[in-house]
Write a protein that binds this DNA or RNA. Sequence first.
RNA 1: CGGGGUGUGGCGCAGCCUGGUAGCGCGCGGCGUUUGGGACGCUGAGGUCGGAGGUUCGAGUCCUCUCACCCCGACCA
Length: 588
Amino acid sequence: MRMSHLFGRTLRDAPGDVELPSHRLMLRAALIRPLGAGIFSLLPMGWRVIRKVEQIIREEIDAIGGQELLMPVVHPADIWRESGRYDQVGPEMARFQDRGERDMVLAMTHEEVVTDLARQEINSYRQLPQLVYHIQTKFRDEPRARGGLIRVREFTMKDSYSLDRDDAGLDRQYQNHWQAYERIFRRCGLAFIVVGADTGMMGGSASHEFMALSDYGEDIVLLSPNGTYAANREVATFQRDVPPPEEALPMEEVETPNTTTIQLLADFLGVPLSRTAKAVFYLGDSGRFIFVVIRGDLDVNETKLRKASGELGLTPAMAEQIRAIGAEPGYGSPVGVHDAVIVADESIRDSPNLVAGANKPGFHLKNVNLGRDYEADVVADIAAAAAGYPSPIDGAPMEATRAIEVGNIFKLGTRYSSILGATYLDEDGRSHPIHMGSYGIGSGRVTATIVEQHHDDKGIIWPVSVAPYHCSLLSLGSANDTEVIAAADTLYADLTAAGVEVLYDDRADRAGVKFNDADLIGLPLRLSVSARTLANGEAELKPRTASEATFVPLAEVVPRVQRLLAALAAPLSGDPPAAAHPSRGQPA
RNA sequence: CGGGGUGUGGCGCAGCCUGGUAGCGCGCGGCGUUUGGGACGCUGAGGUCGGAGGUUCGAGUCCUCUCACCCCGACCA
């Protein structure tokens, strides 16, 4: 590609309000342009990168038996009503009507459609297992798009869906995807870990996320330092301390003025936080009041709470709503409240004689005990893990790290097949729902994450596997220097003929401009030709990561470039590195 | 959705407080000089100051409403 004809110019300055390095660099390097909030065009060079990422994904999913197909972006609402998700998912799904006033949606994901296909095409166990996938645009009306391609509203994902006759088959496909994903992300040059995750709105029984470590990540993962445990904070557990048993003492009301927070209360009474019971109030989407009790030294994990309470969404309750059930903000306890679902953390069950609110301002109760003074509707693990908490595996203090979710794998089980009637007949002629899995990778997010992990202050440093081109070729000096032009043209032709993808900077710009743009765009290799190098019959060759250039006789440029590219590609083969294990956690 | 911020040529910004001819740098066109880390001179094109309404003799500037974008939070296969 001749840069003089490239569509899209590099920018000396990025818009001032852009924060993320990947966002800045992808704008400056002419990879992407914004159209609206969370909506981007991909310029030719950006699109080349995306397609390379997608090709890697294709190859690895094909290698585990995937068959590529394509499902629509626009769905009739009926299929979403059938699965029950039309009312479940809320405003992040874009809805509209066609000219016949039929309800339609823009696809956020394709479980419904693939299940519909499965019920049409699959009748017999003989047709299973199957693995289909597609790479398709999706739209999610995120409440807040941010960070360039990291979090967008319109985006492209590879989604694969596995169809099996039983859980054992599903387990195999899940495991295959785990390994394929490791190969995909290694080939993209990403450093990542695998963590246990929430199944969220997808439903299903198990889920893992592939997390690229990044300071700008939106997720927080908790890691055991020895690699035996890794989980998204949303689901992370930790080893509980169990206090020594005590005899339940008589409940006693004490005056505790101005102790509306747990810390103030503990200070006032001179007891540790772990001797108090904290009340947290939510209103569930179903309209029920969710009254949470947890030990004062712990915090509520809302993801776990959603699951424990069966609520799809939770909103903090207002003071008047809290009083309506007989509690008092700042002095609340489950003792004597009504019209509320009481959800107690395990810490409450295991800790006797806690201080809790008296449900009137300025008073607390001492020696409150679950089971004697009140009953809980649900007792569950709803506590948030945090940095320093003991790992559930071995008790080692966990680290918390920010990360970007670049891929996920879900065991859906029969969540969709049973509702939509995607069944097969077994050897005995009995009908069973198909066991399904769903597996996603966002290609744009992967690309942005690669930039997050591979850049310096001058620009991007592409892994050769996904670089828009392999090599920059710069002609330096006067635009009238026909010798330089001719030599560069020849190199361009020879390299191209040898299969090297060249971005030829043939513009009539000065050397400094070309060097800076080459650094910004960040191709793995940079070749320069000038009157100076030509005097010795040479070109200058510099890997993006090298500090010094080397000089290569013109005749040796092509083989030399090919050798360097091969060397750069070798560690990106997808095979696990010899020594360390890049992903933590246990394959399920 | 809550909080904060920003909208002035393609990009980065000043001007607004204190109303009076719309500016600077980069980029872009032409000519010339230059030519290995974002050159220089001359010259030129390009802006209904996000939009609507209001106050005023006069609004980029003041007031009201509105839209868009960015950041923090809530949210998130």
